[in-house]
Design a binder for these strands. Structure first.
Lengths: 358, 358
DNA sequence: GTGAAAGCGCTAACAA
DNA sequence: TTGTTAGCGCTTTCAC
């Protein structure tokens, strides 16, 4: 099979000029019924398709959107990316993916690379939206861009979760169950402004609600020995009756670790996660957590960028209160002797929430 | 900020021809030291970068690889994609992602789209490599392509897991523990040749090992009510003492469901998964499973495609026996009264296996 | 209604 | 050593 036919081949076969082919096939300008016929026939016979390359060079647009997330190993980002990709495809845009591995340097490098690749827009999560060199590059080129999971700002829109509101919901849940001394468990705290936002919101909420200031249980890096590190942390913080983990995976790990230390969950230690990944429902007891909707975020961010490109109206973002809902679960109960949770949701489920599928 | 400078701008500023700029900046051909100096200076001052578009049009290559997987919601694919992306980036290639959602039609459509986008190569998982229309398109254009998780064949290489070997390992583990009546649990069985391969291998192994022919517990589709569907299946198959699930997520769901039916795991029902996702270690009891290495597969597939592009030697694939290892766990024990597993691995861990990170 | 021609940014062949 | 030129596939004036 030789190389794909070009507009020239079609013109030759239809016995007309290339401009005519372009016009006919693009439905622009005029052409006699007969010419149209011939051109369509020729194109069909040759199996002709426009080369996006020639077009891009000409139009200076690639119908391509760059997407940068820290890691697909985090199912939340995996879902976001997939949803974004699906939405772009609907509008005939392609998604170029890059992972920053939670590294600010790689982040900036990836942005630079994608920009030089002439992407028409970007969807990005950075570790710190306020101080990101990469975002500066984007703004300098004034290319459509939408953040995800970052705080909006500096002129860039963002689809995210109301971290502070969610942290308050968690604090209220702990308070309601009579917890006083709780901790906030985070991985790579320094590299994630969303994690910090959750923490700060949580601190504010706890103190406001009359609980003691939550301890910060921080895990720096690698996780080969995540369980060991966690074991150390939990052992050092025996006074805590509850832990709010900055994501579900950590929460599950904490449950596991607590068990390993001979503690019962929720009897000796209550645990609440964040994200609402479906595995949280597979464990015993069920994981209490903050449910978010990565699909809506991915779809929304994609629409936002595409809207800027096409001049369409930007999609409306949901009310912050609708960006999450609290799910109670067996992992949260009153401290002391085991007592099952009453199952009452603190935040009512909203229509924004949708069943997860895989 | 105006549009990025072109080679012409540089030539003007360096007071020379555009060809000279091209030569100097690309390090091809010769140029006097002085000219070189001027060109470099001009390029630097202008912040010039080659436009990949012009280059592509010229060279007929986009430095872009398409990647199609069923879904990123499956952490195995998420890891594969990320690993592939990382490897491509190392060689300055971009990764365009598309998800087929386990739909053969979308699969073909995605392949068609990416081909028309002029990707230089493809990394693909199809639902059935033997009968895929999309793969035919790829072969027709003779574009470098590497399958993942599919059986190699029809001239296309594939990085995958030795599904049959792994199924045998699982069967041997069940046999060793004295199980006779077991079942194979699969989701979307019809749409996944890898799932079928695991099943067929498992059937062969069980019968060879003197166990009864395993039942096929099949779940068609959606999972909104996955747990309910599973409940039904398990209830209908009370005679089984063991279940081999075609992936870990299903395995975890089965554990949950079994508990819901008042069964103990592994006392009343032993469960073995497939994939080795890290969450399997967070549950109680630990999930016995087949550990695979998606990262190696993603990296390998990427290298394989890139090698074809650059003419480098294709990376060597690991011995099939090294593509997986069996991990024993608390979810597998002898049927009857609870008896803890002895923890002995059936397949020795190999250097091919690496710690998962997220 | 239609085609010739310029030009998008680049590389490579060919002259000079 | 260097510049000129001809495309790569396409869109878009602008004459005809």
């Amino acid at each position: 099979m030789s190389r794909p036919p070009t507009i020239k081949d079609v013109a030759e076969r239809a016995d007309c000029g290339i401009a005519t082919v372009s016009r006919v096939l693009n439905g622009r300008g005029s052409a006699s019924a007969q010419t149209r016929q011939k051109v369509f026939a020729a194109a069909a016979e040759l199996g002709f398709e426009f080369s996006p390359l020639g077009r891009s060079l000409q139009s200076n647009s690639t119908r391509t959107i760059g997407c940068i997330v820290p890691s697909l190993a985090n199912p939340v980002f995996a879902e976001v990316v997939q949803a974004a990709q699906t939405e772009m495809l609907r509008q005939d845009y392609q998604l170029i993916l890059a992972c920053s591995d939670y590294d600010e340097g790689l982040e900036t490098k990836a942005i630079r690379t994608l920009l030089s690749k002439q992407v028409d827009g970007l969807i990005v999560t950075v570790s710190d939206a306020q101080s990101s060199a990469g975002l500066d590059l984007i703004r300098a080129r004034s290319i459509p861009c939408c953040l995800i999971y970052n705080r909006p700002g500096n002129g860039l829109p963002s689809w995210t979760v109301d971290n502070v509101g969610a942290a308050w919901a968690v604090a209220r849940a702990f308070a309601k169950h009579g917890h006083v001394h709780t901790g906030f468990l985070a991985l790579r705290f320094k590299r994630s402004d969303r994690s910090r936002e959750r923490y700060e919101g949580y601190v504010a909420a706890c103190t406001s609600l009359g609980m003691s200031r939550p301890s910060l249980l921080e895990i720096e890096e690698q996780e080969g020995n995540l369980l060991e590190l966690l074991g150390g942390l939990l052992a050092e913080n025996q006074n805590l009756t509850g832990i709010f983990a900055s994501n579900d995976y950590l929460a599950l790990a904490a449950m596991k670790t607590a068990r390993g230390l001979g503690k019962t969950v929720p009897g000796d230690l209550s645990i609440v996660g964040f994200d609402g990944i479906s595995t949280g429902l597979m464990v015993e007891p069920n994981l209490a957590t903050v449910i978010t909707n990565p699909q809506a975020i991915g779809r929304g961010a994609a629409s936002t960028v595409l809207a800027q490109l096409t001049g369409a109206a930007a999609p409306e973002q949901p009310d912050p209160a609708e960006t999450f809902s609290f799910r109670s679960g067996g992992s949260l109960a009153s401290p002391g002797p085991d007592r099952p949770d009453d199952g009452e949701a603190v935040t009512p489920p909203s229509s924004y929430q949708q069943p997860r599928s895989r």
